[in-house]
Amino acid sequence: MNTNSNVYTVVYSAIMVVVVAIVLTVVSVGLKPQQKINMDNEKRINILKCAGIEVDESKAEETFNKAVVESFVVDSLGNKTNDDAFSIKDNLIVFKTVVKDGVVKKEVKLPIFKVENNGQFYYVVPLKGKGLWGAIWGYAALKEDFNTINGVVFAHASETPGLGAKMTEDFFTSQFVGKEMSENGKFVGVNVYKDSKKTAEDPKHGIDAISGSTMTTNGVKNMVNDCLQAYEPLKKTLSSTSASAPAVDNTDTVSEPVPDAPAADSTQNVIK
């Protein structure tokens, strides 16, 4: 047979592509469940990690179920929705634009995990943002005051190895510990400085940038600030419930993030 004829070449490549496609599809579908378990466990490990609980994947699910006292999704007004915090679209913050009665509104769904570690409660929230080359994401754990960062975990899709990719390393993430989000009732978030002297002058919000990775560091800053600011309206409800819990009827208020606090205009405030 003439293996150099045009017909042969075309038929050959067509068959090859179909065969390869079938093989890859079968393998991919077959391994999906196992891969999903791994990814879910990684999610659990990361959520626990920023609340200060170190665990390996064999015990991730068990520990997670024990440590997470409560998880829920709230909208911008602080009302609980029916979504499951863990499985909601990669359990990251979901922003959606809805047009209602001719008014364009941005709808947010904010998942929160309340984690208990040694009698302390932490609110773990997901983060999502843009790095230099692609998506960056992570988790931040806020202390009971819903203001101080207890720990963060970052991940990235394709930041530059050796530069931006360092955003996941301890020397960078540990800087976020103890940073305060608001001051005098105003959201400040974190500030990134190239000069470590300036960082030292701003102990409550200052973060040292990663050398050679300005874009990635700014991406991280924006991610942390934007995402945590989206949760800002919940602060009053969440931190006041724990503070006022003994005074009020315990059973009802402790974990209810709703009641009266966030004003109606918070929809506009949340996302610019």
Binding site: L24, V27, L31, Q34, Q35, N38, N41, E42, E57
Partner: peptide, 11 residues
Amino acid sequence: LVDQILKAFMY
């Protein structure tokens, strides 16, 4: 294939 198998069993 190798990548998929590693993702499933050696994440």
